[in-house]
Amino acid sequence: MASISPLERHAFLLRRLHSLTGIAPIGLFLVSHLLTNSSIVWGLMDSRKAVHGHGGVATFQHEVDFIHSIPFLLIIEVFGLWLPIAFHAALGVYYARSGKANTARYAYQSNWRYRLQRISGYVGILFIFYHVATLRWGWTFLVPGGATWSGEAAASTMALALQGAETGITGAGLAVSIAYMLGVSLLVFHFANGLWTAAITWGVTVSAPAQRRWGFVCAGIGAGMMLMAWSAVIGFATLDVKEARGTEQSLQTGHTPGPQIAETLPQLMPAAASGGH
């Protein structure tokens, strides 16, 4: 008998770990991350935050500060996030290579989802790498306008990284924003569809009706996450950088904003909120 590789010896364990890591920690992180980032929009609805200026900016800053207050963050990040993602991505590519899409002949919806799951995986890997490299590792040469994201000025630097310039969105900024839109959409699909297939893999949903019902639930989860993802990208891509900076400074100094800012709030809110749709 030929010697078998560890990949083959532990085939089942690896397959199930691949499935599991997609849900937890990666999927759970994705949900919380989108929740944090979409606070740039839903934060506008928190009137307590509005005292500092842009409620979304303030809420987002608050969320970021909370995350940065977690002890041993780097260790958690490496072992709870980067390694699982690397594991999920590497195995995912390995597994995906065994298939050959045939949607041209069998254009069933489930077959398209099969294909999209693999495409979204590949694109997702590139997107996550870009996302982490530019915003976490400071590979600013890849950022339009060369902005560096900073935890202290979370919203404004994020907006700058998407838009490319303080003066408003540039061509490169638009391209990056669209890429972000696409990237997060595919990742959300990947997660929601992965949740659906995981239920079959683990044998939770067995009958066709059960699979269909769980499909609706996954679609609902996906739709909710898609809303958060788009809110976040559009929220940052359309954020007024200068105003965001004002809010962030106000948060840092503990100053309540001047009356003129408070007066402008009612006009700002609907504008920002509508951008989140």
Binding site: A11, Y108, R113, T197
Partner: peptide, 17 residues
């Protein structure tokens, strides 16, 4: 449970159709 087993299914579900 080994390589090429049930886990290799990609849930495209063309089979049933």
């Amino acid at each position: 449970m080994g390589t090429g087993g049930v886990n290799d299914c990609g849930n495209a579900q063309n089979c049933v159709k």
